[in-house]
């Protein structure tokens, strides 16, 4: 079990266990993981396919209910029932997925505001769009965007509510190397104080991370800069 403690925890996860059962067997996707992430911290989670990275991220976001353990965001526990945790997720957590899942009939601006919780979100989105070179695309529909632009539109949505915690699940997996690095550069420029957890199977995308942790067989362990700690990077 790994436990990394920081001074101002944005996220506190302790002893998380997640098992998938089918008729033949039980797979422990997350096995006793504890993790504390501080404000402004950038944490990378790497691991091979099937190592439980995305499952852990869904637990941290409150989208999956752990069989054991608990998750708290800024001290506020995520309810066991995902729908009851929706308000916390909407207010405090920004989520970026491998595929941005933009709503096809909405413009980039409208997509960014699908979960806006306050009147400031629009100004926030428009300012951020200027910073990441998306201002001229705010009125475009997703089908007119390139892969990188679509992912940046997803970032606008994730940051619309100025979340304290930004979770990114394989945000560069569907992009070419150059576009992927550009997307990571945008994520690194997230608003001050927002913690960032990026799950990826490609450690080269985690440049600038404060910590890189490896997940294997559902267990978390630190990874040094040389990649030790990960059997199959």
């Amino acid at each position: 079990m790994t436990d990394v403690t920081t001074a101002t925890p944005v996220l506190e996860a302790s002893d998380l266990v997640l098992e998938y059962r089918d008729a033949a067997r039980t797979v422990r996707a997350v096995d006793g993981v504890s993790l504390t992430v501080g404000a402004g911290e950038f944490v990378g989670l790497v691991g091979p396919s099937g190592s439980g990275k995305s499952s852990l991220l869904f637990l941290l976001a409150g989208l999956r209910r752990p069989q054991e353990g608990r998750v708290a965001v800024l001290g506020e526990p995520l309810p066991a029932e995902p729908d009851r945790g929706a308000a916390i997720r909407r207010r405090r957590i920004g989520f970026l997925f491998q595929e941005p899942f933009l709503v096809p009939y909405l413009s980039v601006r409208e997509n960014a505001l699908v979960h806006a919780v306050d009147g400031e979100a629009l100004a926030r989105v428009e300012a951020l769009a200027g910073e990441i070179g998306m201002a001229h695309l705010l009125d475009e529909r997703p089908h007119r965007l390139s892969g990188g632009e679509r992912q940046r539109a997803g970032i606008l949505r994730a940051l619309a509510n100025a979340p304290e915690l930004l979770l990114a699940d394989e945000p560069t997996a569907a992009l070419d190397g150059e576009t992927g690095r550009a997307v990571m550069a945008v994520l690194r420029r997230r608003p001050a104080g927002a913690a960032l957890i990026v799950v990826t199977h490609d450690p080269s995308m985690l440049e600038g991370a404060d910590r890189v942790l490896a997940l294997r067989d559902g267990r978390l362990r630190p990874l040094d800069r040389s990649g030790h700690g990960l059997d199959h990077p």
């Binding site: 308000a87 916390i88 997720r89 909407r90 207010r91 989520f95 699908v114």
Partner: peptide, 14 residues
């Protein structure tokens, strides 16, 4: 389905 999946994921209640 994708549209409503993302609504649920980003924090909309059912």
């Amino acid at each position: 389905v994708d549209e409503f999946g993302i609504y649920l994921a980003v924090g909309h209640r059912r």
